[in-house]
Nucleic acid binder design. Sequence first.
DNA 1: CTGAAAGCGCTTACAG
DNA 2: CTGAAAGCGCTTACAG
Lengths: 366, 366
Amino acid sequence: MPACRKRPDHPATLADVGRAAGVSAMAASAVLNGARTSTRISQDTRARILEAAIRLSYRPNAAARALAQRRMNTLGIAAIVNDGGEFDHYFLEAFNGIISNAAAHSQTTTVFSLHDWHRDAHLLPGFCDGRIDGLILIAPVFDGDTSRFLPSHTPFVAMHPNRTLRDVVNIEADEEPGAYEIVRTLIAAGHRRILHVTGTRGLGGSERRIHAYQRALADHGIAFDPDLQVDGRFSTEGGRAALAGWLAQHTGQPLPDAIFAGNDAIAIGCLEILTKAGYHVPRDLSLVGFDDTLAARTTSPQLTTVRQPLRAMGMRAVEVLLERIRERAGATVPEIPATITFPVEVVHRASVQKPLRPRPRVVAPA
Amino acid sequence: MPACRKRPDHPATLADVGRAAGVSAMAASAVLNGARTSTRISQDTRARILEAAIRLSYRPNAAARALAQRRMNTLGIAAIVNDGGEFDHYFLEAFNGIISNAAAHSQTTTVFSLHDWHRDAHLLPGFCDGRIDGLILIAPVFDGDTSRFLPSHTPFVAMHPNRTLRDVVNIEADEEPGAYEIVRTLIAAGHRRILHVTGTRGLGGSERRIHAYQRALADHGIAFDPDLQVDGRFSTEGGRAALAGWLAQHTGQPLPDAIFAGNDAIAIGCLEILTKAGYHVPRDLSLVGFDDTLAARTTSPQLTTVRQPLRAMGMRAVEVLLERIRERAGATVPEIPATITFPVEVVHRASVQKPLRPRPRVVAPA
DNA sequence: CTGAAAGCGCTTACAG
DNA sequence: CTGAAAGCGCTTACAG
C-alpha cells in the first residue's frame, strides 16, 4: 500500500519520513545519514525512523545533498572520440579502471566526450559546474598556456598528458623503455627491416616511441630508413590508411620483416589490411602493437604488444583525484607527487615469429 | 585580475553576478538563462549582466538548478561488467551510440556497473536518487516480477532485455530472423553438420538464436542433432571451453562442417582453439558469429557475422528515454511503443567457404 | 546535549 | 509588466 503523500509518485523526502515517524526532518537526517549527532536519539525513535524510511523507500536526494555539502560524489572523465564519434579501446581500459575504483569509493562516474582537444578545451569549465567534484583528463593534448582552461576550484588529474601540466597530477607510463624493448624483441627474432607505423606525429607519446624505435635500431647496428616510418595517427583508420598507402607505393618490393605499430588500434588497422591482402601474420611478417587493450587480446592471432597498466593507471587516477578533492575541502592529505609513472612490460603472444627467407614481395592491390 | 568575492576561489553565483552588475540575482538569472521574462530587461542592463558574468566566469551551479527544476540533465546507463570488472565490446558499441546522442541533446551520461543482474538489481533504486533523470538498462536479465526494482518516479529504457519488461521501453533486434539467415547461408554453402556454440542458456537472446538454428535445419531437411549444440555462455572464455570440450569428446570423428557461434566473443574463443589445434578457418571448417562488434573485423580471417545496429540502438534508447522524461514532467509527447525492433543483416566476410570432402577428422589434443 | 533556523544557489509562482 | 518572496531537499552552525 503506497504511502499517503501530497504529490503521489514523487520520491519521499526527509520531511515525509519525519512526519511518518512523528519527528522532525533533522532527526530523520541524523539517523539516516549517520551524522555524529545520531547517537543521542533513543533506540525507539531510531527504529521508528528507520522503519518509516524503508516503508516510504526513502532515498536522499543527490542534488539537494550536493547543494548543501558542496560535494556531488561524482567524478568526471573527459576523453576524445574519433571521427565516427566512438571511444576506442584505450579509453575502455582506462575507463574500466576508473569506474571500478570510483564505485569502490561510492562515487559515480560521468563521461564527457570531446572531438578535438584544441577545439573543445573551452568546454571543460562548463563541465565543472557542480555536477562533478573533480575531472580526469584522458590523454589530453594542450599547447601553450593551459591554465586558463582549468578552473581553479576543481581538481584535475591527467592520464597520459601530451605535456606535463601545471597544477594537475600527471599519470604517465614508461613508454620509451617499453617501445625500446619491443623493438629489441623483433630484432632478436631476426627482423631488420621494421616498419614503424607511428602514433600521431607531434604528440609526446608518439615521439617517445619513435625515439625508442630509432635508438633500438642504432644500438643494433641497423641504419634508420625514413621510408620505413609512416604516420598511423593512433587509430585503426589511420593504421589502415598508412599501411595501405605504404604497400601501394612498394609493389614488387619485399615486404617489411615486421611492423611496429604505435598502438594496438593502429596494429588492428594493419592486421585488417594485411589479412584482406592475403598476407598471414606472423608467417609472412610479424606485427606488434602498444597498450595491451582488449583489442590486442581479441585478434587472431593475438598481438604481442607493450602492456601499459591502463586499468591500474585509471584506478590510481581516482585515488589521487579523491585526495585532491579532500585537500580542496580543507582536509590535510599526504603530499601528492606532480607526476606518477607506471612501469610497462612486453607481452609475448602469437604475432611474432622468425622471418621467412626470402621475404615475400608486395603484390599489387586487388 | 580576479574578482573580489567573500570566498575567493569559489565559483561565482548568480548573486555575485547581480551584485557586480548592480541588479538582483533574478534579473541576472532571467538574462543568463533565457527565461521568457528576459525580454523585458533593457539592452543596457542586459549588457552589464552579460559582461559581469563573463568577467566572473559565471557557470550556473548544476546541483542548485537540478534541485529547483527537478531535472539533472543527466542520463544513466546500467550495464554488466565481466568477472575481471571490465566492460566488453558489446557495451562499448552501445555506449558510443548513447553518449553521442546524449551529448547532442546537452545531456551528460553517468555509468553504473553491475556484476550480476540477479545479485545487484537491488542497487538500481539507489541510482535513481535525483542524480539522473532516466536510466538505460543494457542487456538486463530479470526474472519474475521486476517492477519492485524499478522506481516509478524514474523512466527506464531496456536495450536487449532478457524478457519484455512492463512499464519500460524495450529496444530489441530481429535476432531470430538474423540467426536463421546466417544458418541458411552456411547451408547454402554446402554445410550440413553445423555445430552451434550457443549463448548463455535461458537468456532470451540465446534461445531465439537456438530456435532459429533448429528452424533453419528443419526447413532444409537436416535433422537436429543435440550432440551438435553446446553452451558457450556469450563469452570468449565460454567459447574456448565449449569447443575444446566438444573436440576432446570427438577424437577421431569428423570435424563439423561449420560452427555457428552465439556471438562474436564466442566465435573468437572457437577460432583460438581451432588455430591452436592446427585447423584452418575457413579451409577446414567455416565459422560465423553474431553482433558484428570490432572483434569480428580483427580476426584472421575476418568473421562472417550478423550485424546488430548497436550504435543506432543506443542512440534510439536516448531518444525514447528523453521522450519519457518529458512525458513524466507533464509534457504531452507522441505515443511511445512498448517495444522497438531493429533489423539485422548478415555481413559476409572471409570465414565461410564450401566444405572439404572428405571432412578432416578430429585429432587428439596436443 | 538538543532542537529550530539559516543557508546551499538556483527557479518559479505570485502579489503588487 | 515587474520585483521580492518562497521553495526545491538536504546539512550545519548556533542559540538555548
